[in-house]
Simulated scan of single mutants.
Amino acid sequence: MATTSTIRSIKSVVPLLDRVLVQRFKPETKTASGLFLPSSSASSPLPEASVIAAGPGAPDKDGKLIPTSVKSGDKVLIPGWGGNTIKVGEDEYLLIRESEILAKITE
Rank of each mutant, 00 (worst) to 15 (best):
M1V: 02
T3F: 02
T3W: 03
T4L: 14
S5Q: 10
T6D: 06
I7K: 11
R8T: 07
S9E: 04
S9K: 10
I10W: 10
I10F: 10
K11Q: 13
S12Q: 14
S12G: 15
D18H: 14
D18C: 07
R19Q: 15
R19K: 14
V20R: 02
V20L: 09
L21Y: 05
V22N: 09
Q23A: 09
Q23S: 08
R24G: 15
F25M: 07
F25L: 12
K26A: 14
K26T: 13
K26I: 04
K26L: 11
E28W: 02
E28D: 10
T29L: 10
T29P: 00
T31H: 12
G34C: 08
F36D: 14
L37A: 06
P38D: 14
P38C: 01
S39I: 11
S39G: 05
S39T: 11
S40F: 05
S40G: 03
S41K: 09
A42M: 10
A42L: 05
A42W: 05
S44Q: 12
S44M: 12
P45G: 06
P45M: 04
L46H: 04
P47V: 00
E48V: 06
E48I: 06
A49R: 05
S50Q: 11
S50C: 03
V51F: 06
V51C: 02
I52D: 02
A54G: 06
A58I: 11
P59V: 15
P59K: 15
P59S: 15
P59M: 12
D60R: 04
D60V: 02
K61R: 13
K61I: 08
G63M: 03
K64R: 13
K64A: 12
I66A: 06
I66W: 10
P67T: 03
T68I: 09
T68Y: 07
T68V: 14
T68A: 09
T68H: 06
V70L: 05
S72A: 15
G73S: 04
D74G: 04
D74L: 10
K75P: 00
K75N: 03
V76E: 05
V76H: 03
L77Q: 10
L77E: 14
I78V: 15
P79I: 07
P79T: 11
P79W: 08
G80S: 14
W81T: 14
W81A: 08
W81K: 12
G82Y: 01
G83E: 00
G83L: 02
G83T: 02
G83I: 02
N84D: 12
T85H: 05
T85N: 13
I86T: 04
K87Q: 15
K87F: 03
V88L: 05
V88Q: 09
G89A: 06
G89C: 07
E90T: 12
E90I: 08
L94V: 09
L94G: 08
L94C: 10
L95V: 12
L95I: 08
I96M: 13
I96W: 01
I96R: 00
E98N: 09
S99Y: 00
E100T: 10
E100I: 00
E100M: 13
I101Y: 02
I101N: 03
L102E: 15
A103E: 15
K104S: 12
K104H: 12
I105S: 05
I105F: 08
T106M: 07
T106H: 09
